[in-house]
């Protein structure tokens, strides 16, 4: 076994005694990765021996609890349903749509005429109407109020986002601390 297969000495010892981490490894039966000197120390040292007993009891208690809770958690959850990929259905739908559109190709010339007429006549009419509406008296008088309302809305949204961010930040700090 190489030195990489052992726990680092600085983690196993805490001054003259074996650290909590070393005792945890011994209590978990991981004696192969703990240097022999640490195990010999635990056998001889009454204080470390007492800590080993308490560590082993804690390991057993938590282990049995975790073993009980995990199957229950797994069994209480419905199995994840794997949704079939929609590519085949999409392909079939596209093919049907193209087939259905084939008869309309005969009227393609009429459609092109309609689009060109809309661009040459319809678009200028819509543009003129929009300009007239924008420069009309009621709209221009309401513009400052609309600007203030938009600003207030933006400020409100900014505050809500900042609040939500700070909340999630606090939760992540609590998790990392635990």
């Amino acid at each position: 076994m190489s030195s990489d297969d052992k726990l680092p000495r600085e983690l196993v010892w805490e001054g003259a005694h074996v650290s909590d981490l070393g005792l945890t490894a011994i209590a978990d039966g991981e004696t192969a990765i703990v240097e022999a000197g640490a195990i010999a120390h635990v056998e001889a040292c009454e204080w470390c021996g007492g800590r080993l007993g308490r560590t082993a009891l804690l390991a057993e208690a938590v282990g049995s609890g975790v073993a009980q809770v995990r199957p229950a958690t797994v069994s209480s959850r419905p199995p994840a349903r794997v949704m079939p990929k929609p590519w085949r259905a999409l392909g079939a739908g596209t093919a049907v749509a193209m087939l259905a559109g084939l008869p309309a190709l005969a009227h393609l010339g009429n459609f092109v005429d309609y689009v060109s007429a809309f661009c040459t006549r319809g678009v200028p009419v819509i543009a003129r109407g929009g300009f007239a509406l924008a420069t009309s008296e009621p709209v221009t008088s309401a513009l400052p109020a609309a600007t203030f309302a938009a600003s207030a809305l933006l400020i409100g949204m900014g505050l809500m986002i900042a609040r939500a961010r700070s909340r999630s930040g606090e939760q992540s700090v609590e998790r990392s601390a635990s």
């Binding site: 680092p8 945890t24 490894a25 978990d28 560590t55 804690l58 938590v62 609890g65």
Partner: peptide, 24 residues
């Protein structure tokens, strides 16, 4: 390996603390 040992130890203590169980 040391990281695993540290994780196991810390996780165990956290779970035990959350249910009010200490080493004592």
């Amino acid at each position: 390996l040391g990281t695993v040992a540290t994780w196991v130890m810390r996780a165990r203590k956290s779970v035990a603390a959350s249910v009010g169980v200490s080493e004592d």
